[in-house]
Amino acid sequence: MTTFHAVLRIDHQNAEVLQFDAEHLQSQRIKAHTHHTAQHASGVRSEHEFYAAVCEALAEIPEVLVAGSKTALADFRHYAEKHRPALVPHLVGYETIDHPTAPQLVAMARKFFLRYDRMAGTPTPA
């Protein structure tokens, strides 16, 4: 399915990418894999591997709204800006949220993209 918009719900252990158009919804889940080692900074390595997997899932999506807790958004944004600068222009907005259901998240994203597309002067694809 080719979609124009997506919303990424992220925390420090899980991510869910919801791609949608007027008629379809596709969901992809990504989980962090923790490495229990005595090696220094293994937690940082695990976090980078998780964020890298999330960025790979977003690679072909033109416009992504990122939603999550304040710290999760800040950490993911920092990772993307430092390690995946080509992806940054596709991350068009950040929303701090609690724990909405998938339908609530998609409804919020649809409203966001309606406003975003109007401001950008581009028609929202059907």
Rank of each mutant, 00 (worst) to 15 (best):
E47G: 05
H5C: 12
Q28F: 06
V17T: 05
R9V: 00
T37D: 14
H40Q: 13
G43F: 15
E23A: 08
V44Y: 12
A52D: 03
A6F: 11
F50R: 01
H36I: 09
S46W: 08
Q28M: 10
V44F: 09
H5W: 05
Q39S: 04
V17Q: 07
L25Y: 05
A22R: 13
I10Q: 03
F20Q: 00
Q19K: 13
A6W: 12
F50W: 07
I30Q: 04
S46D: 15
R29Q: 07
T34I: 07
D21A: 06
H24T: 11
F20C: 00
H33D: 07
A22L: 06
V44C: 12
H35Y: 13
S42F: 15
F20W: 04
I30G: 01
L8Q: 06
L8D: 00
I10M: 12
A38M: 14
A32T: 02
Q13G: 02
S46I: 05
Q39D: 04
G43M: 13
I10V: 12
Q13P: 00
R9G: 02
L8G: 01
R9M: 08
E49I: 03
S42V: 14
L8N: 08
A32N: 02
H48G: 02
T34M: 14
K31R: 14
A41Q: 15
Y51D: 01
A41S: 15
I30E: 01
F50N: 00
S27W: 00
Q19S: 08
H12W: 06
H12N: 06
E47F: 04
E49H: 06
V17K: 06
H35R: 12
L18P: 01
S42L: 09
K31N: 05
A15M: 09
E49C: 09
T37P: 05
F50Q: 00
E47W: 05
E49D: 14
Q28K: 15
A6I: 12
A6V: 10
T34E: 12
R45F: 07
E16W: 08
R45W: 07
K31H: 13
H35D: 10
K31L: 04
Q39I: 13
S46F: 09
A22V: 02
S27T: 05
A22Y: 09
D21K: 09
H48L: 04
A38Q: 15
R45K: 11
T34K: 15
K31E: 06
Q26I: 01
D21E: 11
